[in-house]
Design a protein around this nucleic acid. Structure first.
Lengths: 331, 331
DNA sequence: AGCACTTGTTGAAACGTTTCACCACCGTGT
DNA sequence: ACACGGTGGTGAAACGTTTCAACAAGTGCT
């Protein structure tokens, strides 16, 4: 592999000069610069980032560690983060934990060893060993889609309690007295918060709540949960799902069983992913500003890796209900 | 930041010993090993990968450079690649070019500078400068979802010509004489191949083909293309879309305009993403084995980065038609 | 001619690891 | 008493950059 030395020798200059050509072209004479550049071209020299980083002590890469790339919500978060980073000439690499604690741990360790510039985190497990170790590594990080105490780190999130409440209130107002709640794994703060929101509205409302915990946050888990809902008697007349993938799965189960939506079963999802509006029955959903979440978090992280870091911030966005066919009001 | 030296000093051993504790624990005496380990724990030492890599000359990270993470097809490819890599203790980082040539170029340069172990590529632009430079960097790479000549690199792809033909033949057989084809940007080989497949079947069949080139391969472009289809007269009675996102967009346009699917407009998509079956009208689609694509490509790449690389391979999978409501046969 | 700048280039140190030849020590068999 | 092999540890070189003090050569001013 061709290094700076080879270029230097071939161009008849010192390695310092080659380095200057690459990093501060203006300090080297035009003739020399061109000569060196053409040798670089000729030899196909590519600078070795690990050596550069070893010397510089800091990387030019930012990472996004995401809960589940299979969820279009997180893809939008990633897009927002990419936009912010690219506008400052920083590349973002995406790591997908797929909600597996060990995968997450392995990525955290890798990112710490890489000494990346900073990490955007949407972790499964904030308390685990891997996370503890990562904290000590001194790499700046910002939480996305998860609020944390201000003394720990900055965070950019959406008020999930409000979101859960929004959904529950909507179902109450559209006349439902028995409401199902398909939640995801309660290890996730998001799920616990949405649950809290639902309960805060339903408690004392007279409505009955039937909880179902899905194993995952994907369509298959939703179908499974849908089957369980169908088996209940009495069966709820409406269901709120902790995200749209679950809701799509539940919807499929209903369609498959010939249960009419929304007449026999109203459905509310969460995230308002692009596919929610295009579903068999367009889904009512709680919209989160995913792209802005990613962009804001990335901007904050970039700022925190600068010379004079700004103060920590806990930004909390407010979710918004988007009403569609799946909860059409009965007459 | 704490380095191996700090650990060595604190534990009263040489840095060589600390390195041994980390990399070849068996060669160091139990007592020493434990002492060093506890100091590592206490100081929160994390090895610096750039130094390690500088010395070792090779990285332990593989990358996947993907055309569009917004397309669930590529998310499945990524999942397959992750599975293969993780099973061999290699981490995969995902980079999303979003079909932007400059973003792709910037990631290629970054990956070359990082000296990653290998790259899985689904590039927009195989001929551009960035790709040329990347080739010369000597980093092993394998193409995913794109066939290339065997002398260039290995590739794992799906026969897009056959896929296009499959769709066209299905529409012919279900009695359509005027077929629309919403294709993506023809800079993409996939789009050109699907087009070729369609034409190979339709030419001489007597059916009329109306082509529409969408600006992107996403739902919004599909809606746009749908509007253009609606403006045609005579209007096609069926449309094949180069991927499911486009098809979903076209479907939305039809639903919005009150055009019945499949009665007034049959629709065939491509990829068979999870959301295709859950759409307003479940979509007929050409299924590609996305997960296997990713896994197979990653396995091949891993093998090629080993001591004795196996010969290059051009694996081509065969697509499969999944018939659903959106092309239900008229009686 | 002598001086003070400016411009362009160089050589060497430093970054944090891994690796490897070498050394010190101990127990064992002669 | 000696050589021997094994075990556990050390010290220094090497990896490919960046950075910076130092220097050489040229330019303009007195």
């Amino acid at each position: 592999m061709v290094g700076i030395k080879d270029v230097a020798k071939r161009a008849g200059v010192s390695i310092g000069t080659v380095s200057n050509v690459v990093n501060r072209p203006h300090v080297v004479a035009t003739a020399t610069r061109n000569r060196v550049l053409s040798v670089i071209q000729e030899l196909g020299y590519v600078r070795d980032e690990s050596a550069r980083q070893l010397r510089a002590g800091r990387s030019r890469i930012m990472a996004l560690l995401v809960l589940d790339l299979g969820n279009p919500f997180f893809v939008d978060v990633a897009r927002g983060a990419e936009e912010a980073a690219h506008s400052q000439g920083i590349n973002i690499i995406t790591c997908n934990s797929g909600q597996r604690v060990e995968t997450e741990a392995s990525y955290l360790a890798m990112l710490a060893e890489q000494r990346v510039r900073g990490v955007l985190l949407s972790p499964v497990d904030t308390g685990g060993d891997a996370m503890q170790a990562f904290r000590r590594s001194g790499i700046p990080y910002v939480f996305v889609d998860r609020k944390v105490p201000a003394d720990e780190a900055s965070s950019v999130s959406v008020d999930d309690v409000a979101g859960g409440a929004l959904a529950a209130r909507h179902l109450l107002e559209t006349g439902h007295g028995h409401i199902g709640f398909v939640n995801g794994p309660t290890i996730l703060t998001q799920c616990r918060d949405r649950d809290a929101g639902v309960r805060s509205v339903l408690t004392g409302s007279g409505a009955h709540l039937s909880g179902v915990e899905a194993v995952g946050l994907d369509v298959a888990s939703g179908r499974d949960a849908g089957a369980r809902l169908l088996g209940m008697s009495p069966r709820p007349t409406a269901v709120f799902c902790a995200n749209d993938l679950l809701a799509l799965g539940v919807l499929q189960a209903m369609v498959g069983a010939g249960v009419r939506v929304p007449d026999e079963m109203a459905i509310v999802g969460y995230d308002d992913i692009e596919f929610a509006g295009a579903a068999a029955v367009p889904l009512t959903s709680v919209r989160q500003p995913a792209f802005r979440l990613g962009r804001t978090a990335a901007e904050q992280l970039l700022a925190e890796t600068e010379e004079n870091p700004p103060p920590r911030r806990q930004e909390v966005f407010t979710p918004e209900l988007v009403v569609r066919e799946s909860t059409r009001v009965r007459r």
